[in-house]
C-alpha cells in the first residue's frame, strides 16, 4: 500500500473564548486507504507520543450517516469528494501536499475547541417545528394513510439530510436555508405533516433567524457541498411555504 507524507495546517483553539490560529504539523506515513479522520487519528498518536495535546475534532459513526463529522478541508466543507469527511480517503491527496483543516465557520456555529463546533442551533430549529404530533399507543395500520409516490419520493429525498451543517459552512452568508428547507419539506410534503404545516414552517424559520444564521442570497454553494445531495429546490419550497403560512397566520 502507498503511504503519504503530508503537511497539515490545523486550526488550534484552546476553548470557545480563546483566540485560535493555524498550526502546521507533519503527518507522516499515512496509508492512502486511510480515511481523513483516520489520518487525524494517526496524527494525534504522533502528537501524543511527543507529549503534545491531541487535535479535537467531531466524529461518530464514520459511515457517512450520522452527520457528526465536519471540517473545512482546503476551504471546502467535507473536502474534495461529494461525501462526508469520514468517507473521504487519503488517496484524494498527493504526497507532500499541504492541507488546510479548519472548523465549519458561522456565527451560529461557535468553535468549542480546535475543529469542534457547536451545531446545537440545528437541534433547536428541529425542536421548534421539525416534528409531527402523533398519539401514543398502538400504531395504526401502515397503509391507512395513502401517500402519492411523487410525494413519498420528494419527502424521502429531503429526509436524507443528516444535519451536518456543511451547507452553513459553505454559504458565504452563513445561511441555514438548505437545512431548514430539507427538514420542513420532508414533513410538509407528507400527509402526516399537513395539520402542523404552517405552524411548523413559521416556527422553524423564526428560530433559524433568531439563532443568527444569515439570509439566503441564492449562491447555491450549499447544494454543491451537501453530502446528502439535498437539492436547492427545498429552499424555493420553504420560501413558498413560509409566505403562505405568514399570510394565513395574519388573516386567522
Amino acid at each position: 500500500m502507498k503511504h503519504l507524507n503530508l503537511k497539515v495546517k490545523v486550526w488550534r483553539q484552546k476553548n470557545a473564548s480563546a483566540e485560535g490560529g493555524l498550526v502546521e504539523y507533519e503527518a507522516r506515513n499515512i496509508p492512502e486507504d486511510a480515511s481523513f479522520l483516520e489520518m487525524l487519528d494517526i496524527l494525534n498518536e504522533q502528537l501524543q507520543e511527543k507529549g503534545e495535546p491531541a487535535i479535537a475534532f467531531d466524529h461518530d459513526c464514520r459511515e457517512g450517516i450520522c452527520g457528526m463529522c465536519s471540517l473545512s478541508i482546503n476551504g471546502i466543507p467535507h473536502g474534495p469528494s461529494a461525501t462526508t469527511t469520514c468517507q473521504l480517503y487519503m488517496r484524494h491527496f498527493k504526497d507532500g501536499e499541504t492541507i488546510f483543516i479548519e472548523p465549519f465557520r458561522a456565527r451560529a456555529f461557535p468553535v468549542l475547541r480546535d475543529l469542534m463546533v457547536d451545531r446545537s442551533a440545528f437541534d433547536r430549529i428541529q425542536q421548534a417545528g421539525g416534528y409531527i404530533t402523533a398519539r401514543t399507543g398502538s400504531a395504526q395500520d401502515a397503509n391507512a394513510i395513502l401517500i402519492p409516490k411523487p410525494a413519498a419520493d420528494k419527502a424521502m429525498e429531503a429526509a436524507a439530510c443528516i444535519g451536518c451543517g456543511a451547507c452553513v459552512a459553505a454559504c458565504p452568508n452563513g445561511s441555514a436555508m438548505l437545512f431548514v428547507g430539507a427538514k420542513a419539506t420532508h414533513l410538509n410534503t407528507l400527509p402526516q405533516g399537513q395539520p402542523e404545516r404552517n405552524q411548523r414552517t413559521l416556527a422553524m424559520v423564526r428560530k433559524m433567524d433568531a439563532e443568527g444564521f444569515g439570509n439566503c442570497s441564492n449562491h447555491y454553494e450549499c447544494e454543491a457541498v451537501c453530502p446528502a445531495n439535498i437539492p436547492l429546490t427545498v429552499i424555493s419550497q420553504l420560501n413558498r411555504d413560509f409566505v403562505k403560512a405568514a399570510v394565513s397566520e395574519s388573516v386567522q
Binding site: L22, F100, E102, P103, R105, G212, F213, E221
Partner: peptide
C-alpha cells in the same frame, strides 16, 4: 446581516459554484 452571520472567515476559502454575477 449576512456579513455579521459570517463575521469570521476561514484562512483558506474555496468556491464550488463560482459565478462572477453572484
Amino acid at each position: 446581516e449576512n456579513k455579521a452571520a459570517k463575521a469570521r472567515q476561514n484562512e483558506r476559502r474555496a468556491s464550488t459554484a463560482p459565478k462572477p454575477a453572484k
